[in-house]
């Protein structure tokens, strides 16, 4: 598949320099609560990518017919319909994970990434690039989620995706899981560390 230079930028930009969480400050709400284990973090990342991509596509197709006064409500309805579909699919095929994620699947509706990309990109661009933009931003969001989930599960429970990773001999020598990592506030600290790391590599992103 040959991607033009521009489309490549739209797709890959959000993974690094234009990351929705660490740079654009969008979608933090749901990013943190689901990351105490790796598995729900991955499911959440995939769900958000799907919803962002398809809502971008739909709104981009409709962009010339929506009156701008009621566009927020139209956008919310489109997004809510997509999220309902995702929720029903998860309930049917991954019931345990959908129980763990509880209300946070529903909260994708008000996830600022979805609304932010609809307003900033899909309303002014053709369906093709909008779809790519949705996938890119979903992946950029997912990347942070997965990194946070990885560290929290590894340090907090010594497992990854439910499998024991840290060998028993470590525990025998006196190593203990850090229970603090599972508690909600540590998600914020891990994200802060990611931001710290990214901004010390990339000086342009630093705030004055």
């Amino acid at each position: 598949m040959g991607l033009s230079e521009n489309n490549k930028k739209i797709l890959l930009g959000p993974l690094g320099k234009n990351n929705p969480i660490s740079v654009q400050m969008l979608g933090i709400c749901s990013a943190l609560a689901v990351t105490s284990k790796l598995e729900p973090a991955i499911v959440m990342a995939v769900s958000v990518t799907v919803v962002t991509a398809f809502s971008n596509l739909v709104i981009s197709l409709l962009r010339n017919t929506i009156p701008s006064r009621i566009r927020i409500i139209v956008q919310l309805v489109v997004v809510a319909a997509l999220v309902t579909i995702v929720n029903e699919v998860l309930k049917a095929f991954a019931y345990d994970v959908s129980k763990q994620l509880s209300v946070f699947i529903g909260l994708i509706i008000t996830n600022c990434i979805v609304m932010g990309r609809l307003e900033a990109f899909a309303l002014g661009n053709k369906p093709g690039p909008s779809f790519l933009d949705g996938i890119g931003n979903g992946l950029g969001y997912g990347l942070i989620l997965i990194v946070v989930g990885f560290f929290r599960e590894l340090l907090g429970s010594g497992t990854l995706l439910g499998f024991q990773v840290i060998p028993q001999s470590f525990y025998d020598m006196g190593y203990a899981n850090n229970g603090l990592m599972i508690l909600p506030p540590m998600a914020l600290i891990v994200v802060a560390c990611i931001i710290w790391f990214q901004r010390s590599k990339d000086k342009d992103l630093q705030e004055k």
Binding site: P184, P185, L188, A192, W196, Q198, R199, Q206, E207
Partner: peptide, 23 residues
């Protein structure tokens, strides 16, 4: 504050500390 932490970074850490307080 260290430069890379300014703004968003330190806000996250503060929220975490307040959260631990609320616990």
């Amino acid at each position: 504050i260290p430069k890379p932490l300014k703004g968003l970074g330190i806000a996250f850490i503060l929220t975490a500390l307040m959260g631990i307080g609320f616990m």
